[in-house]
Write a protein that binds this DNA or RNA. Structure first.
Lengths: 408, 408
DNA sequence: TTGGGTTTGTTGTGGGATTCAGCATACCGA
DNA sequence: TCGGTATGCTGAATCCCACAACAAACCCAA
């Protein structure tokens, strides 16, 4: 899933397109697979040994991968050198929230090399975000080798992002609306900036490096303080919809007699499966999402148990609808939905099995997300890596702070 | 959307892959566009004149397209010959229903050349379907020139199809279950047979030749006697899910206090928007889907009006959920849902606008399907044409009745 | 009727990408 | 130490497209 850098005008393939595709295939495989030998790559791609050799050679001279001594194996035959992503190539992840920004540096290959939460005294503004990103870049650039090169910045937004106009269309939790955040950041950091919805990036991360790895059809549901977000990979492709507005899985109807949703209608999944309603009955105040497991594991009050059952039923109903729509191999649950799933696993499984169409239910397994706090950084890094993975040798990399393109 | 003939093992591109892609591009363009000049194809593909000439030449020698005299135009410059799909290349469409089979012959380019409903005295069985298909083939083969070549048979099923095992998993209306229909037909007709859900094929047809042409994101909802089916194209790709089980849009939850659905749960969209409930109040018996427009246009009874309003509201709620999930550019409504939309257009529009997320609602337009009775034939033909469009010169074509492969 | 301008078809050359065969290299096991 | 095996490396052959030059077919205007 190289994020579809499609220029919509369907184009014929020239000869160099073949090369681009093969380089992309190899780099993506190394990115996703971590360490692969050249002979692994040969088998994987179905290309000739000599071709793979040439492709890897190109990627090495571009500084994108490194070849290391063969691993000690106990097979006959000449050992094949190991190809790893270069540790010098990184992406920057930015994830604004109400009280601050989570910034991270992620290496090619998906390793989160550094992750930092920068708090603001007041409610975070878009301008703050741009400035904090700049500060972060200046600071971390000193902590990384001078050979480090950055591919760009990926921004994850808890809200609706217009991927065409590169604006935040609506982020109720942040209280942002029609904010040209990409331009704001690009003015400060002179790096290419891309932006998408956080749950969309979540499913990208999980389906590449997490619980959805190896599956072409994955649904991801994430519960956060700002609501219920979702992302879907169908047939190996991200479901985005026009201008990237799609996959708002929190806003499917569950119960027309339900509570009023922020979106205006009654009984969205988001109003029925909701952390605020947990807080309201828990008697422990605004328990953080990471502490929910602990809360649920304690001997809970009757009120909390009732509420958990109710939310579990609503979640099962929602998942059943999503199964009937997408027939995924995996449904991945994150945030407070993940905690709810952990606490009411049997009840949710039963509800889903009873309500989903039989063939669809049989194929899907429900799992909790595995990447946790690394998910958003990895997802937004994936967004930034997209162009590089799609066209390895023609995508520019940048040194920290300066926009001087490094030779390919 | 050449139907994704992906062999899942990601493969590298060889040089001939380039050729295959370009041939596919040209043939698909001619298939979808009807008549294009060679210079149109040059602009469309971005390839060189000479390359397009060679590609078209290959397709002509394969008998897939024909070049005709240039159209009379009033532009300066040498006239460019017109490229049309060959009228000798056809696909066969088979669509079983309770009381019989609808068979059709569809030419490359999407023209329905012949369409016939074959009724059976009793409830149709899978074996009947295979035999009737054979009879149909034998009969029509005499009505077409001997130069005609068939690419294969596409079967549209009102039910859940296992595209991996090539079986009908569940077709409640037909009362079929786990039927290996593809094998049954292939035993009779010695042609390649492919099968899919009818609504899935509907959205393929509409998004290629109908109301969804030119859009990458399309949701299709079809109401028939057997229930509510759906199909989705997202980002130019068909949403299929694991084994093709997905896109059961009729089975999303609308109202947990609603009626019992055939699938077992309460208040699916299918139970709330439903032709049987129209019949129950219309006082005119089981009005056919094609006669609903007439029924609705008459001065309707109060009961019918109330029911139409109720169904319109339920439909609007369902569409709103689908908009939030897929953010399509178009929502196409067919069958009795199309008639309902026609009768309650304003009410449905208002309901959708009120309930869908604002950005999503602004981008989508609701339209009735345009292909009507040609939709299923075109869709299933598209299924049969898939391999040919994906790899024009290496796909075998067959003469009527015999499996002797015709030279490419 | 003729000639310039314009667009497109056609042909041969050249460069890029892959495959293939043959040989070299590095490991295992006896 | 030697055969077996798997892999890396190199140069020739093949396939595909772009490009340039020329030819063909149309328009328009004189």
């Amino acid at each position: 899933m190289g994020d579809e850098v499609s220029d919509r005008t369907v184009r014929g393939s020239r000869n160099e397109e073949t090369r681009r595709r093969n380089l992309s295939l190899v780099l993506s495989a190394v990115h996703a697979g971590g360490e692969l030998t050249r002979s692994d790559l040969t088998r994987l791609s179905g290309l000739n040994r000599s071709t793979v050799g040439a492709l890897v050679g190109d990627l090495v001279s571009a500084g994108l991968v490194v070849e290391a001594e063969p691993r000690a194996t106990h097979q006959a035959g000449r050992p094949s050198p190991v190809v790893r992503p270069s540790s010098d190539v990184v992406a920057v992840s930015v994830n604004p929230d109400v009280a601050g920004v989570v910034c991270a540096v992620v290496g090619l290959g998906g390793e989160v090399r550094l992750r930092e939460t920068i708090l603001t005294p007041e409610h975070l503004t878009p301008e703050d975000t741009a400035l904090l990103t700049k500060d972060f870049l200046e600071k971390v650039s000193k902590e990384f080798p001078s050979t480090t090169r950055v591919v760009g910045v990926g921004v994850a937004i808890p809200g609706i992002v217009d991927e065409q106009r590169n604006t935040v269309r609506e982020a109720p939790h942040l209280k942002w609306r029609d904010v040209p955040l990409v331009s704001l950041i690009e003015e400060e950091v002179t790096l290419p900036v891309r932006m998408a919805n956080d749950a969309t990036l979540g499913v990208m991360a999980e389906s590449m490096f997490g619980a959805g790895a190896g599956f072409d059809d994955v649904v991801y549901l994430n519960g956060s303080v700002s609501g219920l977000g979702g992302g879907v990979v169908s047939g190996g492709h991200l479901v985005k919809g026009v201008r990237g507005f799609g996959a708002e899985l929190g806003h499917i109807l569950i119960n027309p007699q339900g509570a009023v949703c922020a979106c205006g209608r009654l009984g969205c999944l988001e109003t029925e499966v909701n952390i605020q309603r947990i807080w309201a009955v828990s008697g422990e105040g605004q328990v953080g999402i990471d502490d929910l497991d602990h809360l649920y594991a304690q001997r809970a009050s009757a009120a909390l148990n009732t509420e958990l059952d109710r939310q579990a039923d609503a979640l099962a109903a929602g998942i059943a609808s999503l199964l009937n729509i997408f027939a995924p191999a995996r449904v991945i649950l994150g945030g407070h939905v993940g905690a709810l799933f952990e606490a009411r696993s049997d009840r949710i499984h039963e509800g889903v099995t009873a309500q989903a169409l039989a063939p669809v239910g049989e194929e899907a397994s429900l799992v909790r997300n595995v990447l946790r706090e690394r998910m958003v950084p990895i997802g937004s890094a994936q967004l930034a890596f997209g162009p590089l993975l799609a066209d390895p040798v023609n995508t520019s990399l940048f040194e920290w702070g300066s926009r001087a393109a490094v030779a390919n």
